[in-house]
Write a protein that binds this DNA or RNA. Structure first.
Lengths: 191, 191
DNA sequence: CGAAGAAATTGATGTATGGTAAAAAATTTA
DNA sequence: TAAATTTTTTACCATACATCAATTTCTTCG
């Protein structure tokens, strides 16, 4: 919890009232590996801030293949923004990839926070900008890099996710099959 | 210009002072087909709001291939957000794909606007959320759809871009070659 | 209008990655 | 620790899409 406040105050200054309000709309949760925080078909009314560990969001297509939209590590937010923005039910699953610590917010609570404490908008805008830039970079990578090069970028960006996540999550983030990822790794060993 | 104001007031209410301020930091520009508004290697200090026509942003890799990050049509914003956010020089080119009308803002002007008129934050957040959601959807499409299916989505989303844009821009948005796009189109004709 | 240039198509062939299935390795659980 | 389960690897073959090059069609503009 403290970590969230630290993170926020590293970006904006926070009045005691705002701080109290944040406490009132959020709660700390420890989630076990494999725990599902948002699941497909549900209404989405939660947003999570990760203080420890790693979560992911992914969708499952008709053939049952998973496609990972996001890995959320320390200091990142995760939810199903598509569903929230369009006021739809979730097509995504948000799942904890290892034992993690998150701060849970209700979407309503966050909205109220922004209304009651407009100074929070600056913080929120910063988050959105950062997120947007990371998505744009990912799209450019997807367009111009080979699977192997994308894997390089991934490893740089998330150096330790491999250590606790099955291959297929990573593969599904890169847009390839687990077998292909396995082959890419094999080829590395040769050089 | 009026169209921008209309667009803004459809989302938030705008004080006369705020309105004046917006006028003071922006200017209307007519840009010809092929005009380059931001080019690779430059400092980025402009953001454009499209009121008419269509612009695109793309990067060019070492081999000279173009990769389209965004098409911006009416009521969308376009710039090189990656460069702005990271305070780097642009890796993107922003170009007009047909004769268009845009409102040009300086990044500094927009920042000042947000400071002077915090009510504008809500509007800005809305834009960012919309943009973010569209990027997330695109990533999910890229991960799970075939080239042909992505083309379907593209046509739905931008029904008339084909009528004025060379194929290769579209192909480079979809992440395929112009030849592949041509074949996809050909296959359509057969059914 | 007609020539020059740009864009789109088409064919032949190449390559990266996918699919399937079986075996091996690692991890979890009893 | 052994059995069960999950994950990874490997082999073989399939396919979507890329590449290259030639040709045709469409635009632009003198």
């Amino acid at each position: 919890m403290e970590q969230l406040i630290n993170y926020i105050t590293s970006k904006i200054s926070l009045s005691p009232e705002a701080k109290d309000y944040i406490y009132s709309i959020s709660k700390k949760r420890i989630v076990e590996k494999g725990a599902v925080l948002i699941c497909e078909g549900q209404k989405v009314n939660k947003i999570f801030f990760v203080t420890e560990g790693c979560l992911s969001s992914y969708c499952t297509d008709e053939v049952g293949r998973e496609h990972t939209l996001q890995f959320a590590i320390k200091n990142w937010w995760i939810s199903d923004y598509i569903a929230i923005y369009n006021n739809e039910r979730s097509q995504l699953t948000v799942e904890s990839l290892k034992k993690s610590q998150v701060i849970e917010f209700s979407t309503q609570g966050l909205e109220d926070l922004l209304i009651k404490f407009p100074e929070f908008e600056v913080f929120q805008r910063n988050n959105l900008e950062r997120h947007l830039v990371s998505l744009q970079k990912r799209i450019l990578n997807q367009l111009q890099l080979s699977a192997s090069e994308r894997y390089d970028v991934f490893v740089q960006q998330y150096p330790d996710i491999e250590s606790f996540t099955p291959n297929y999550h990573i593969a599904s983030y890169l847009g390839i099959t687990q077998e292909s990822l396995s082959r890419i790794r094999f080829d590395r060993g040769k050089k």
